[in-house]
Simulated assay, not measured.
Amino acid sequence: MFDMTLTLDIDKPSEKKPVVVQTIILAAGLALLVLAPLFFYPVFLMKLLCFALFACAFNLLLGYTGLLSFGHAAFFGGAAYFTAHAVKEWGLPPELGILVGVAGAAFLGAIIGFLAIRRQGIYFAMITLALAQMFYFFCLQAEFTKGEDGIQSVPRGHLFGFIDLSQSTNMYYFVLGVFIIGVAIIWRIIHSPFGMILKSIRENETRAVSLGYSVRNYKLAAFVMSAALTGLAGGIKALVFQFATLTDVSWQMSGEVILMTLLGGIGTLIGPLFGAGLVVTLQNYLATSEFPVTIITGLVFMVCVLLFRRGIVGEFYNSRLGRKLGFEHRH
């Protein structure tokens, strides 16, 4: 008993310091996001936040459940179409339009997930890709998506009836609020008992089955949650850029979110944020240059794979400084 008490008394002060440091880092990050429109173009920042939320939602499935989906563009682009149609054709306010997009993405996630989780590994990935391509061709032929032209001139409307989102500053802080809510939901999921079960499935699915967990149901639930949060990002994107096109549901979009997640570090909460920031920044600043964006992005990815096997944030978590600050990365 004496040894146990002594150990606990020694551990308490050492545990407080990392928590304080992490809280300070979080507060500094939020402050930077609030002040960012003073220094950067708001539309660029909104694009970054949309894709950062997209990457975090995808990471919930890949990093914490161990399921690699090649079809997440279906949920991102599908929600963009649903939100754009609801706001433009039905006249819904932006908050309800986004909820329509989230509900549509969750419905798609339930259908695709129900069919895909019956297989594992590369077979799971290929099924998600095939079903996502089927949805792509549906969007190409469907009347409400306007085919190759897409849904254009989507009105941003007024949030709650009185906040004019046509002003970039108002729209930015709305996107920031949705982004914070989305990331907070993901944080709560992965730190809940449900999230612990997802991690156990990722580490050893056979053992999770032997413990009595219905692994298939947990996988499906994680898939639907990831799809719904991806839909949240897609709905916001449709309002920010005021259009929804076939690019949003193409397989290249699924490849981009995988790239963002791997660059930042799978199995980390903030890793996809850094990965999305890196990719979006490269796309934005190289778009007007003579350098081919895809080649430069590929070179950056090759360098990160060779030097940062766990991703940028994942390597930091496993460094001496990261461990000293109380971060850990076990994936």
Rank of each mutant, 00 (worst) to 15 (best):
V280Q: 12
D248L: 11
L321E: 03
E256R: 11
F308A: 13
F291T: 11
L278A: 05
L262A: 01
P272S: 02
F308Q: 09
V240L: 07
L259T: 08
E256S: 10
Q252P: 13
L307E: 04
A287P: 03
E256T: 14
I258S: 11
Y285K: 07
A287G: 04
G235H: 01
G271M: 07
V249Q: 03
T268Q: 06
Q252S: 12
L286K: 04
G275Q: 09
G235M: 02
N318C: 14
I296M: 07
V257S: 01
V305G: 01
Q252C: 03
G275F: 10
F274N: 05
V279F: 01
Q252A: 13
T294S: 11
F308H: 10
L307F: 15
A276V: 10
L273T: 11
T261A: 15
L263N: 00
G235R: 01
T297L: 14
L321K: 07
V293T: 14
E315W: 08
G235T: 02
A276E: 05
I295V: 14
T261F: 08
Y317I: 01
V305D: 01
L232H: 11
P292F: 11
G298Q: 05
L282A: 04
S250D: 15
N318A: 12
G275R: 06
A287T: 12
E290T: 07
W251R: 03
P292I: 07
L269M: 11
L306K: 13
L246I: 11
G255K: 07
V293P: 09
G322W: 06
E256M: 13
G298L: 09
V303Q: 08
T294K: 07
V305A: 02
G277C: 10
L321G: 03
M260I: 01
K237W: 15
E315G: 08
F308C: 14
G265Y: 02
I270Y: 15
D248F: 13
G234Y: 04
L259I: 13
G277H: 12
A276I: 09
R310M: 04
G311V: 00
L286G: 10
E290I: 09
I295K: 00
G314D: 00
L286Q: 08
F308G: 08
V305L: 12
V257L: 02
Y317W: 03
R320S: 14
G275S: 12
L273I: 15
D248I: 10
I258D: 04
L286V: 06
G298M: 06
Y317A: 13
G298C: 09
A287C: 04
G267T: 10
M253W: 11
G264S: 03
V293N: 07
M253I: 07
Y285M: 05
L263F: 00
T294G: 03
S289K: 06
R323N: 12
F274A: 14
G271Q: 10
I312C: 00
A287L: 12
V313G: 00
L299I: 15
G265Q: 04
L262T: 00
A244Y: 06
Y285E: 13
F308S: 08
L239Q: 09
A238G: 08
V293L: 04
A238P: 13
T281P: 06
F308M: 13
T281Y: 07
R309N: 09
V280L: 05
I258P: 04
Q242R: 14
L239A: 07
A238H: 09
E290G: 12
T245A: 14
M260N: 02
V249C: 02
L259N: 01
F301P: 06
T288N: 15
Y317N: 03
G277K: 12
T297H: 03
